[in-house]
Design a protein around this nucleic acid. Structure first.
Lengths: 124, 124
DNA sequence: CGATATATATCGCTATACGAGGTATGGAGC
DNA sequence: GCTCCATACCTCGTATAGCGATATATATCG
């Protein structure tokens, strides 16, 4: 266990750091991912959790996706419709609006810029 | 001005959205950038603001960099020393520790994963 | 009738970036 | 000497987003 014998390289504390880092990275990343997925066709919250979970390696929490979708709709980037199902509870399908596609394109450009920048920084 | 005539594609509100998005993106990104720059040699807060400003297009605020550096030091990833200058106020030079390099390498891997993922999502 | 899977929503907590404000040092101009 | 400015550090309050926990409802299966 070595509880506190090796502070400078304690792998356990590094894991914690990385976990928190990835949590922060998701702020901004998830909006992009949701818009990108919706740009390929409509979907709904519960389904997005599993599709994005496949991408990300870990599920995004319900407490994340539903507020996120509400936000995007309030901001006019996506729209929703209720779909009554023959079996099971109703689904709220979201689809991307033209404004959402514009924003997505801008985000994609900015993302590419940032990636180029990081390559430049890490490989001098 | 068209204050509210074109909600779905209002470029002004899109700019606001993108501005907020980039703010959120920086959460996590800046830690990476600071560690990456420090991995190439020691530096100090005030200097980091302008070097990273060049990279990012906009300066990072002083209220961002100083707490960030304190945090990284508290977490044992970087260390600092005071340098008295012949002219002007003293500088607090930060340098990366071995544990910081390990974390930086892990972040780089994860970042590459995420970039591949985004490419897969946006180009089906 | 209770357990489970599906599906949506909300609340409180935490972490981080930023703007505004504060402190201090030393050089240039009046 | 005195004021202005660039350099250099720090801290506080605000806003935002992800997450875990919790609540609710529908339909199916045993």
């Amino acid at each position: 266990m070595s509880p506190s014998s090796n502070p400078p390289s304690d792998p356990e504390s590094h894991d914690l750091f990385l976990k928190r880092w990835q949590l922060q990275l998701r702020k901004g990343l998830l909006v992009y991912l949701v818009l990108a997925v919706l740009s390929e066709g409509e979907s709904y919250g519960y389904r997005l959790i599993s599709s994005l979970g496949d991408y990300l390696g870990s599920d995004m929490a319900e407490g994340t996706i539903y507020p996120l979708l509400s936000r995007l709709q309030r901001q006019g980037l996506i729209e929703s419709r209720w779909q009554i199902m023959d079996s099971g509870p109703a689904r709220k399908y979201y689809s991307i609006k033209p404004g959402g596609r514009e924003v997505l394109a801008a985000m994609k450009d900015r993302w590419e810029q940032i990636h180029q920048l990081l390559k430049r920084v890490s490989t001098p």
